[in-house]
Write a protein that binds this DNA or RNA. Structure first.
Lengths: 193, 193
DNA sequence: ATATTTCTTGACCGACCGTTCAGAAACTGG
DNA sequence: CCAGTTTCTGAACGGTCGGTCAAGAAATAT
């Protein structure tokens, strides 16, 4: 009962996500947000609490939309090695896709806000943990198939791959050139041999 | 002639650098800066132009103090491979050193500001280029000594190592634990074998 | 049809933002 | 000791910040 929302949460959240993704948290004003989201201030505060709340919700949305696609790539191949390769190839394509913000919202949030804001820190931490877990599964799968030496620590490899994905996001934001990113991915994948 | 400065530029710049390093650019107010730098607003504007100018000067200072130390590690060993190992070991130690801001000012600046501000972007770009050049020299040295297969591209390896250093900085900010960082470094160095 | 609930709207709030500036203070050259 | 120059000091500037709120609009329940 009562008057229904005139907007879909996910639709305006997608727009907010893009704004935060391109401009960062602090550089984005509420005025900027309401303009791009196409709703009024009151609606924003009614639906998401405050700017921080909207930001955390935007990271969550990013997790469900963007990160989920990358994690899916990690599970899509029977071969663990092929899955990891697919993950990084997809990451490069996403990083270079026209009309898409550069870099990664989670990486940006980790460096800009995670140190000061608990809610952001825990969201970022859980997303990174999810990625690491995905890599871990892929590595174990690859080891079982004999693609990767069983003597190597899957935990260390998973952490390395997670870190590499972060590094790639930083580089994608600074040097969004295919040649650069492909050079990097080539050597990341070389670690697995 | 005229009244002399009551502060040393590098001293107050070091303090500004630390503030930006821990809090980022946008989240740091000029009020915050003058408090921590121990000078007045007027002096700040007189010496550094504006907030942006101070920020760029702080990155420059970071380059001369922190990055220079890492680059020196890269030149300190005759063996290219040992030099790269030393670089990453030092990076881990710096990342975990108590009383020091986590992560890396250049990495933070790359994700927070480089996309919007040209001056920051060119400063960040030149620092990263310097690091990449250092890695490149070390890789070539290692190849000449037979430590690394000559068939591998030193440019790709240098780019990979630069990217890895960025990733490590992100991870250091989110998970400042020795075990995590050492796992990552172990696998980064494994690429060279 | 009316009461009730929720959402929308746009004006409004005090606080703080980055920046400026006039005047006092501290130096140098004559 | 004074004129000239630079720096220091702290108050002040307009603008924008994140956030609130009262009133109207649109739905449901009775």
């Amino acid at each position: 009962m009562g008057r229904p929302r005139e907007f879909k949460d996910d639709v305006v959240l997608d727009r907010a996500m893009r704004v935060f993704w391109t401009r960062g948290y602090e550089a984005t004003s509420v005025q900027h947000l309401v303009t791009r989201m196409g709703i009024q201030r009151g609606s924003l505060y009614g639906a998401f609490g405050d700017k921080r709340g909207l930001f955390v919700a935007a990271i969550d949305r990013y997790d469900r939309v963007v990160t989920a696609k990358l994690l899916a790539a990690l599970e899509a191949e029977a071969s663990g090695k092929a899955a990891i390769r697919r993950f990084f190839r997809l990451k490069v394509e996403l990083a270079l896709a026209p009309g898409r913000p550069r870099g990664c919202l989670v990486t940006n949030s980790a460096t800009e806000l995670a140190a000061h804001d608990r809610r952001t820190a825990s969201k970022v931490g859980s997303v990174l943990a999810k990625i690491e877990a995905g890599f871990h599964r892929a590595v174990v799968r690859a080891q079982k198939a004999g693609e990767i030496d069983r003597a190597r620590s899957p935990r260390a490899l998973a952490r390395f791959l997670t870190s590499s994905a972060q590094g790639l996001s930083v580089m994608a934001k600074t040097f969004p050139e295919r040649a650069v990113l492909e050079d990097i991915v080539k050597e990341i994948l070389a670690v697995l041999d």
